[in-house]
Design a protein around this nucleic acid. Sequence first.
DNA 1: AATAATTTTAATCATTTGATTAAATATTTT
DNA 2: AAAATATTTAATCAAATGATTAAAATTATT
Lengths: 205, 205
Amino acid sequence: MSKKAKDITTEEKIKEAARKIFTSKGYAAARTRDIAEEAGMNLALLNYYFRSKEKLFEIVMIENFMHFISGIKTIMYNEETSLKEKIQILVSFYIDKLSAQPDLPLFILNSVKANPKVIKGIFNKQILQKSYFFKQLQQELSKNKNATSNPINILINILSMIIFPFIGQPMINEIGLSKKEDFNNLLQERKKLLPIWIMQMIKGK
Amino acid sequence: MSKKAKDITTEEKIKEAARKIFTSKGYAAARTRDIAEEAGMNLALLNYYFRSKEKLFEIVMIENFMHFISGIKTIMYNEETSLKEKIQILVSFYIDKLSAQPDLPLFILNSVKANPKVIKGIFNKQILQKSYFFKQLQQELSKNKNATSNPINILINILSMIIFPFIGQPMINEIGLSKKEDFNNLLQERKKLLPIWIMQMIKGK
DNA sequence: AATAATTTTAATCATTTGATTAAATATTTT
DNA sequence: AAAATATTTAATCAAATGATTAAAATTATT
């Protein structure tokens, strides 16, 4: 096996293990020994490849975050789709994505809270406001005279209703769900209904 | 100062410091020394009064959680108010409450994820489903034939749209807000609009 | 094949951190 | 006031943890 090829494999194994451990336990509770064990590697390799726990975390966090918002841009900048279609695609895309990685949102929210700087350069006002989605949203809101709603508030509603079920899952399970109707059914229903609810908000009854 | 009176003061000081440190840093990142310093107390008093960091955390977490949902019960069981009024009250009550303690939701969500057992005994299916609010919600949803929405999904939407702005604040600030329109304005607008949006969902356009 | 460079391992370090202890101080009871 | 009880403090412990080191093993270069 060539040097470079091996490099990549080991590095990737560690990063993948780090992603798993950091995402499930959070930065402070994750021990470097957990990560090494998860990766099946010697503890020292962690520092050999990434210098420190903190550096490794930063890399994983930024990759996680970019992974999370990578889809959003392509959807938002598409000039072929209507506002309604964009919302439908966004909802389906993220509900599926987060179903596969349900720990991701809480991890990202905690990370951003602990270190808000990381968002800068990855996502900002410009990217949102230059998007075709934002223009379509503004246009549709302007049609509705009475409810003078800030487009940001609509965006918050979209994100919150997509993301919250995942970060609140343990609570939802305890408070609301019986055995039959499991969490997945709930999500499937939300895939259908969320776009309807959101369009109602935008159109104003 | 009497023995008992002093007891309460010291204990309360530690608990208050613990609440602050745990809520802002999370369990793992909070050091007992931080808490002792915040309380202006000797480190050993922590163990003298609460045996361990974990015990202290449990107490603070349960109190936080109960504090958080204490309001919900009284609002939900009130037979004098309409569904719409309940939602208006719920929204205003929690937006005000969380404005005063914006770290609380993320703390609770992390705690419940780390230890889902704690919810049991504090809140459960029974409490929700026996409430007058739940009956009113079911009744209103049944009027709407086409959208066969689970009442739980409506409840998730209510909670998510109230809570998410607080847990996503650092992200919202970076992505969406310019200097003028600050976070507080956003919240005030949401106080007015959230009940409208929710009622639209329930009535089905 | 011999040498050089890279990667991996086992052992160890230094700090941090939750917890304890024994003595000192303060408070309550008699 | 004396004795008993409770609270507080300073010092210390033991375990956990991030990091380092020097040697061993592996891979690449000549």
